[in-house]
Design a protein around this nucleic acid. Sequence first.
DNA 1: CCCTGATTCGC
DNA 2: GCGAATCAGG
Length: 174
Amino acid sequence: MNWTDERVEKLKKLWSEGLSASQIAAQLGGVSRNAVIGKVHRLNLPGRAKAGGTATAARTPKRTASAPRAPAYTSRVATRTVARQQGATMLKEEIEVDAVNEITYRPAANVVVPISRRLGLTELTERTCKWPVGDPLKDDFHFCGNDSPDSSPYCTYHQRMAYQPVHDRRRNNG
DNA sequence: CCCTGATTCGC
DNA sequence: GCGAATCAGG
């Protein structure tokens, strides 16, 4: 896949929105996360200051094949302790809050739904539960997102539901 | 082991 | 310019 103007534009947009390279790669399709990161650098887009993933300042390359190279970044110096978290970390915070609310405000729920990570489409990976929750036509639709063992499509909880006859799960959906 | 981004260098 | 391999870290 080549970098058309369209794809580059989308890359810029998603990157600025704080999506991770792998998420962007997934959304663009046909490229690896490395490709995305490489492109980001080539475009001179701002890296991730220090939040979320890592980006622990300029790492000292051990790999010196030819010439010792000048530091690629002059800036990146502004080490400001931003409170704003990104990516997985930010998501985690939301999850915990939601989980608490769920348990606290729904004590009467018949069969308690396991804690859901409330993941959106872009957050699903090969090992997250892909059990859909809610009405796909409404905007609160999401996926369970819990860890699923052995790269199976559902977590252990939803795995059971998936193979039960519809009339057995009754309306305990989700 | 899962993930994150950063860098190098052969292509 | 591209991106796999590799590195460094959470």
